[in-house]
C-alpha cells in the first residue's frame, strides 16, 4: 500500500503545478531532497555514509519504507531510529525513500 503513495503524491503535485505555476506546490520539486537532507547528519550527504551508520543511497524505496515502518512499530530493534521514524509522516517517509533510492551508491 505504501508503495502507491509516492506515485499518487507525484500525480497530485503534477495536477497542482499544471493549474497554478506560481503556487507553493512549485517548491515541492525539492521537497524530497530537503527532507532527505535531514538524514544526512548521520547517514551522509545524499545518503552516502562515510562511517558505520549504513548508507541509504541506492537502497530500494520499498526497503527503506518497510524499515521505517518497522522502526515505528517497534518490530526492528533500534537505538534511536524508532524515535526519529515517528517524526515523519508516511508521505514524507515515501518521499525520502524514493529520493535515496535514486542516489548513486
Amino acid at each position: 500500500m505504501n508503495l502507491l503513495k509516492p506515485a499518487a503524491l507525484i500525480a497530485a503535485l503534477g495536477a497542482t503545478v499544471a493549474i497554478a505555476q506560481t503556487s507553493p506546490a512549485v517548491a515541492d520539486k525539492n521537497l524530497a531532497r530537503n527532507l532527505a537532507a535531514t538524514c544526512a547528519n548521520c547517514h551522509g550527504t545524499n545518503g552516502k555514509s562515510v562511517a558505520e551508520v549504513p548508507s541509504l543511497a541506492g537502497v530500494p524505496a520499498n526497503v527503506t519504507i518497510q524499515k521505517m515502518k518497522d522502526y515505528r512499530d517497534g518490530k526492528l530493534p533500534a537505538t534511536i531510529m524508532h524515535q526519529l521514524a515517528k517524526g515523519l509522516t508516511d508521505e514524507q517517509t515515501a518521499l525520502v525513500a524514493d529520493y535515496f533510492a535514486k542516489q548513486p551508491k
Binding site: N41, C42, G44, T45, V50, A51, V53, I80
Partner: peptide, 12 residues
Amino acid sequence: YANSWARNIWAD
C-alpha cells in the same frame, strides 16, 4: 554510532 555521527556530520 556517536563516533560515526561525528564523521558523517563533519563530512556533511
